[in-house]
Design a protein around this nucleic acid. Sequence first.
DNA 1: TATGAATGAGGATTCATTCAT
DNA 2: AATGAATGAATCCTCATTCAT
Lengths: 195, 195, 195, 195
Amino acid sequence: MPKLGMEPIRKRQLIDATIASIHAYGYGDTTVARIGRAAGVSPGIIHHYFGGKGELLEATMRSLLRGLRRSVIKRLEHAHGPRARIEAIIDGNFAGEQFAPEAVTAWLAFWAQVPHAPRLARLQHVNAQRLRSNLRHAFRELLPAARVDRATSGLAAMLDGLWLRCALTPGGIAPSEARSLAGEYLEHQLIRHRN
Amino acid sequence: MPKLGMEPIRKRQLIDATIASIHAYGYGDTTVARIGRAAGVSPGIIHHYFGGKGELLEATMRSLLRGLRRSVIKRLEHAHGPRARIEAIIDGNFAGEQFAPEAVTAWLAFWAQVPHAPRLARLQHVNAQRLRSNLRHAFRELLPAARVDRATSGLAAMLDGLWLRCALTPGGIAPSEARSLAGEYLEHQLIRHRN
Amino acid sequence: MPKLGMEPIRKRQLIDATIASIHAYGYGDTTVARIGRAAGVSPGIIHHYFGGKGELLEATMRSLLRGLRRSVIKRLEHAHGPRARIEAIIDGNFAGEQFAPEAVTAWLAFWAQVPHAPRLARLQHVNAQRLRSNLRHAFRELLPAARVDRATSGLAAMLDGLWLRCALTPGGIAPSEARSLAGEYLEHQLIRHRN
Amino acid sequence: MPKLGMEPIRKRQLIDATIASIHAYGYGDTTVARIGRAAGVSPGIIHHYFGGKGELLEATMRSLLRGLRRSVIKRLEHAHGPRARIEAIIDGNFAGEQFAPEAVTAWLAFWAQVPHAPRLARLQHVNAQRLRSNLRHAFRELLPAARVDRATSGLAAMLDGLWLRCALTPGGIAPSEARSLAGEYLEHQLIRHRN
DNA sequence: TATGAATGAGGATTCATTCAT
DNA sequence: AATGAATGAATCCTCATTCAT
């Protein structure tokens, strides 16, 4: 008789194992065999639950994006005012669970696939748009119209750059430092306007 | 006598073909067969000149780094004063030849290998150190000691973030826009101090 | 549940196919494709069960050695007295199953690898030591101490020489003739002493 | 202008380099590149002088056989009487130049090719026949007709067995010991008859 | 649901051979 | 005579995927 309700459990196990494998071996050396071993199941089961390796990878990227989204949303709920909302977005990006080495390495790996994997590209695009949209809305209440886009692009680039630096030099950047540099960038944008 | 002096020509051809292949197919789907085809030679010749695929990839990353370095150095030669030097570094990073889509995609691909390829990691590390060192020297003449490190980290992150944005949304960011955002960041750092 | 218990069956099939391939094509032209075809399986399965071609070859030599050992041991069990033990060793070496053309060709091929394959060298060394030890123990009861080593070396060389002759001129030497020549050598050693 | 008389010099160099390469890397890992390097020439030259790798290998085996033949013939010239002729053959087989480690390893390698290389098989066959013929002629003057063939086969097997032992355990058998064991075998054959 | 046996296409690499110089 | 550039077939090995149990 079949075990009931295994599906969500197995899917989560396999996604976590995928992130762990990407962190340990890299994207190119992440095989279904390794993922299966890390999850404690046989390689064949991946196709049962996901249909193939590609779908598992897509689900994994989706999971990372969802995690980031939740991290931001959770902080947005307690944010009052535009500036607090931007700070919530910054904090959500560098929260402990998002900024763990495993997650950051996996992020970088998926970024590198984006130019050649349309499915992943769409996920990335949607996410980037949401981030920009959130930032823009907030900046609109704080800056003159002519400066909104530039501030949005600048802060988005700064966030990505800090993530990248974390991925490339593990241990080289602490969440608090990343938050501080992004916060400083925000402050510059606002101070300038106030003067 | 055999055909002489082919080595530098072939090596350059193969490196260019590697960049083209990474751009067209992605790092993981870049095979010696594809590189050979793009260069108009047989796959076997790669081992004749480079010893293996890994060495060719390393040589390719080295070539990208050298190109960036030259682009910066060329501009540094005509830069007088610390601020001009920082602007030369920014301009060198977003010069046309460095910011071409092929180069940017390849950069991203190599970045993603860094956490799992010690040889590539060392190249990246040396390059990052040089960039930081250049920036720090210039900032030291412009900012109080306590702010030098933060300005250096911030500008370095901004540069990387702009590159990354270019790789992820092709056509979405123009060199002039990148230069402008980085320049604005620089200005903010300096303005604050002057006041 | 998957097909169970295939491992020992497949391993035996692949070892037998390896011996057949060495006999048919030679050691250097024995490829995983040919072995797989001879065993009626795909080439990939070799790596599934043995990890690689080298391990399969090692397992094959081990199998040949084990066969020879068993052939000798079986006859030693019914041998009473030192001379009978030596004759049992001779008989075991030239028993039908060991002296088949396939086995002899494979033996020669492995011998030729010994100087350059440490793993195979160890197998050969252990086997040679066992043979010498068995012969020496028996000769000690039959000959004065001063003659034991020479008789051992001489008989061992004779056994190898007869095997080699069999491999080099197929059909040129019958088991019975080999046994007879080895037996005569033994007799000479003993007669001399009795006189 | 072409260098004159290079052919015999180059051929000898290449044959020596082939023996050295077989000794150092084994038959299967002896490539034209390695042979060329050992001889200090380019790989292409092998085809100029020999037409191909196969022909060079055949010439190398021929060279080894010729060396052995000469070693025996030289000693036969000073041998008077049948027994002395047999002893000359034994001595010729274990003379220093024939019994050098390089030569013995190469011998073993060629033996292993014999079952699958008709050209090499013929060389081996002719050589074996000559050895047997020489021994038989001498034994005919020393033994009753019924024993000639057995003595010939036995001594031939003993010679091969001693060579083989030398190849498999380098440094494990001295020429003097080999000569002594073969001489003892000869003596046994003759003593028996005299009684 | 889950296994692991089995496949076969595709990868990097090696290497004898050819050829322009 | 001699080089070494270049080829392309062949080899080992990896791996996503399928499938019988």
